[in-house]
């Protein structure tokens, strides 16, 4: 059996940062995510609607797209997607084409039952916040 998770609960330290993931958002990302998710709100895909009707600077990334990249960041660390037990965040900053978003996590506490709780968030290169107050709970063998 191929083992997906090589990380061990005992090897994790409170305060430890997990590898970050960085992504530069472009407008095709939102078109592709709209099709994959079924969320066709034109603020994500139609620049004319986004600017002229919704009064946004441009199309903006789906919040759930950003959250999916946050989930990917945690799963990249633990290896086994089935070990991600909980993920939450607040959608705060708008992401427009050209923005680079960095997804981050830091171990907050270790619980009984081999559970590890992380603070997770996403910010742009200039430090402005995209996903705030996030929390992930993972199981580790």
């Amino acid at each position: 059996m191929a083992e997906l998770c090589e990380l061990k609960y005992d090897d994790v330290q409170v305060g430890q940062e997990i590898p970050s993931f960085s992504h530069q958002f472009d407008r095709m990302d939102a078109v592709i995510y709209a099709g994959a998710s079924g969320d066709f709100n034109p603020i994500h895909t139609n620049p004319f609607f986004a600017k002229d009707v919704a009064m946004l600077p441009d199309v903006i990334a789906h919040g759930l797209f950003n959250m999916a990249l946050l989930g990917k960041t945690v799963v990249d660390w633990i290896g086994d997607p089935g070990y991600l037990k909980k993920l939450s965040c607040q959608f705060r900053g708008m992401v427009i084409p050209g923005d680079t978003v960095i997804f981050k996590g830091k171990v907050r506490e270790k619980l009984e039952g081999n559970l590890v709780v992380l603070d997770v968030w996403a910010e742009k290169a200039d430090g402005s916040i995209v996903l705030k107050g996030g929390e992930a709970t993972v199981f580790l063998p």
Binding site: D29, F65, K72, D80
Partner: peptide, 17 residues
């Protein structure tokens, strides 16, 4: 294919997906 499409849209090529 929908599962794969979603993972690809979320930039995740992890083989288990």
């Amino acid at each position: 294919e929908k599962m794969r499409e979603y993972a690809a849209a979320a930039k995740d090529n992890r083989p288990i997906y």
